[in-house]
Design a protein around this nucleic acid. Structure first.
Lengths: 233, 233
DNA sequence: GACCACAGTATGGTCAGACCATAGCATCCC
DNA sequence: GGGATGCTATGGTCTGACCATACTGTGGTC
C-alpha cells in the first residue's frame, strides 16, 4: 500500500550522521584547508559510533576532495582539510563515462561551452600568455599523438585557468582528463595537426588582442575541427 | 632529502585496489545502470581483502553516484549500479563552498555561463515550454521568498534540461542546490520580484521565438539583476 | 653542549568475527 | 489454496586486535 501520506521512517546510517556533524563543524567553526580534524578514534568516541563508521565518512570526504589522510604522528598526520575539487570531478566524469550514463558528445559539448567562456574571459583580463605559447611550441615539437595531446591539454587548461575562475578551471581539467582517450583518437584520425596548431595560434592571438568574440569563435572552430558534430545534429 | 630522483613507493590502500578492479569490471563487462555488483562478503573473499575495505570502496562509489546499496534479499538487494552524477556534484559544491575553497562569485559566474549556453540551446531546439510557464505562474503565486526560490529553481533547471545535455543539466541543478541560501538572500534583498518575473517572461519569449542570442542576453541581464557584480570588477 | 640511537606513542590501514535489521523466499500447516 | 512461520542472504554496525608509519622525547655518547 503506497500513497497513504505516511512518511518513510528516516533511517540515517551512522556514517551519514558523522558526515553531517563534520560538515556542520566545518561551517560553524569556519574551518578551511589546512585545518585538522580529530583523529578517527577520538571522533568515534565523541560521536558514539564505531571507528568503522568514522572511516566510511572519511572515505566520502576524501572522495569529495575535502579531506586528506596521512598516517604517522605529528602536526601533519591525521585527517586534514584540503581543497581538491578537481580530483573528485575527474573521478566522477570518468566513472560515468565508463558506465555509459554520459555520452561523449555531452561531455564534448560541455567542454566547448566552458572553453568559449574561458577564452572570452581570458581575452578581457589580459593574462600571462607565456604558458600558452610554450604549449604551442611543445605541440610543434611533439613526436606522437600522445605527446601532442599532452601539450594540447596544457594549452587548454592554461586557457581555462586564465579565466580566473577556479571552478571552471577545475571542471576543464577534469573534462580533459576524462576525455584523454577521445582526444588521442581525434588527433590520430586527423593525421595532420597543422590545422589544430593554426587554431591554437588564432586563439592566442585573439587573447593577446583582447578580442573576446574572436577568441570564442576561434575556440568554437577549433573544437568543431577536432570533434566534428554528427551529421544529424 | 628530496629531489633525489627516487620514485615514492606506491602504497595502494586496499579499498583503492577494490575500486580499480570494480571500475575495470564495469568497463570490461560493459555494466550499466541497473546491473548488480557481487555482495560485499563475496567481493571481499574473491579479492582477498576484508569486508571493511570493500565497504569503504562502496562508500566511494556511492559518493560518486554510481552505486546504490539496498539491504534485504532478492533481485533488488545488494549493490546496484545507478547513474546519479547530480547528487555527487551537489555534495561536492556544497562542501567546497562551506570550506570557503570556492567563492560564491565563482559559482555564480559558472552558473551564468551554463545558463547562457542552455538558454541559447533551448531556443534552437524548441523544447516543451509548459514546465517553464508553470514555474512562472508558481512564482507569481508564491507567498514567501523560499517559495519563490523553489519555483525559480524549477524554472532554471527546466531551462537547463531543455538543452538536452544531461551533464550541464545536472551541473545546473547542483549549482542551484548549493546556492539556495544565496538565492533566498538575493530575493529578500531585492524585495520586489516583479523585475525578476519580467526577466523570466523575456527568457521564455526568446525561447519560444527561437532566438538564441536574445535568450542568452535575457539570461545575462537576469542574473546581473539577481547577483549584482562587485563594483571593482 | 651537540648529536645520535632508541624506546614511546599517536596516527591511519587492515583484518576477523560477531551481531542486528531487513526483506525476499521456502516451507509447513490448516 | 492460503496464510503463518522460519530460513537465509543482504547491508549496517560494533568490538578488538594487530600492523606500519612517523613524530617525540629521552638518554647516552662524544
Amino acid at each position: 500500500m503506497t500513497g497513504t501520506g505516511w512518511q518513510p521512517v528516516r533511517k540515517t546510517r551512522a556514517f551519514e550522521d558523522v558526515l553531517a556533524q563534520v560538515e556542520r563543524r566545518i561551517a560553524e567553526d569556519g574551518l578551511t584547508a589546512g585545518d585538522r580534524l580529530p583523529a578517527e578514534r577520538h571522533l568515534a568516541e565523541q560521536l558514539g559510533v564505531s571507528r568503522s563508521s568514522v572511516r566510511e565518512a572519511m572515505r566520502v570526504l576524501e572522495t569529495l576532495g575535502v579531506v586528506s589522510s596521512q598516517v604517522g604522528r605529528g602536526p601533519d598526520a591525521g585527517a586534514v582539510l584540503v581543497s581538491k575539487p578537481g580530483a573528485a570531478l575527474t573521478d566522477l566524469l570518468r566513472l560515468h563515462l565508463g558506465l555509459a550514463s554520459l555520452e561523449p558528445r555531452e561531455v564534448i559539448d560541455t567542454r566547448l561551452m566552458i572553453e568559449r567562456w574561458a577564452a572570452a574571459r581570458a581575452a578581457l583580463t589580459g593574462p600571462d600568455t607565456s604558458v600558452l605559447a610554450e604549449a604551442i611550441a611543445g605541440m610543434d615539437a611533439a613526436a606522437s599523438a600522445e605527446e601532442f595531446v599532452e601539450h594540447d591539454t596544457a594549452f587548454h587548461c592554461a586557457l581555462a585557468e586564465a579565466s580566473g575562475n577556479r571552478l571552471t578551471a577545475a571542471f576543464m581539467r577534469s573534462l580533459r582528463d576524462s576525455l584523454r582517450r577521445y582526444a588521442v583518437e581525434a588527433v590520430v584520425r586527423l593525421g595532420d595537426t597543422s590545422g589544430l596548431q593554426a587554431d591554437h595560434r588564432r586563439i592566442l592571438r585573439a587573447v593577446l588582442d583582447g578580442d573576446p568574440d574572436e577568441a570564442a569563435e576561434a575556440v568554437t572552430d577549433h573544437l568543431a575541427r577536432a570533434y566534428p558534430a554528427p551529421a544529424g545534429e
